[in-house]
Amino acid sequence: SSHDHMDVPELNSDVNDNKTVNAVKMIAKSTENISATENAETSKNALMEKLAKIEFFSAEFNQQIFDEAGNELQQGSGLLSVSKPNLVNWQTIMPDESLIVSDGKNLWFYDPFVEQVSVYTLESAIANTPILLITSNDPKLWQDYSVSQLSDNRYLVTANNDNARVKSLELSFVKNANNLELSAFNILDATGQLSVITLNHQHKAPKPDLFKFTVPEGVYLDDQR
């Protein structure tokens, strides 16, 4: 299509195993039995501290979407680059292309399948693009979410607003040669549908123009701001 392609390294799409299906059961269970006495404030601060350590990264992602019974609905892969503040480039390559770019002010969603770019303000986009939470340390964006710590490297971020379409986001970290990496994040929607995204880090800084977006020739602009 019209925007240029990075030469994409061979993406390994590993076969799903029931580890991921257990993730469905585990999250449902862990969401229930989080004791109210858990001090959400310290967990939120602990998470914010971890996120603050992550200046930027670029990684190959593998994504699997499961319905509430654990059946796999869809599988996909692509590249995710992130930088602060609020800079995201999410490029789905398989099974087909789409591109999400947050330039820090607006969120651009390019869907070649319908030859359209939709653009949203960051605040309004966050409800449907939970990845934005990871790149922001803006307390205003975080106030709608509470955090609980599942283990020393796993955090559950839950939407306070009951009818939020994204119910919770589980972030997993891993220590890699004494720097901290986000290794996976799972998105649980309000109906129990789960998107499991695992990251395979490429240890190079993302190029700044990844976080700029221009509407490709001949594509319809759907301005939602």
């Binding site: 609905l73 869809q74 999400i100 693009t129 994204v166 998105i187 929607d189 309000a190 549908q193 998107s195």
Partner: peptide, 13 residues
Amino acid sequence: LNLSTLFGIKVLE
């Protein structure tokens, strides 16, 4: 029949 968004958020089932 399930329709979902890119991030797996269910639109219609």
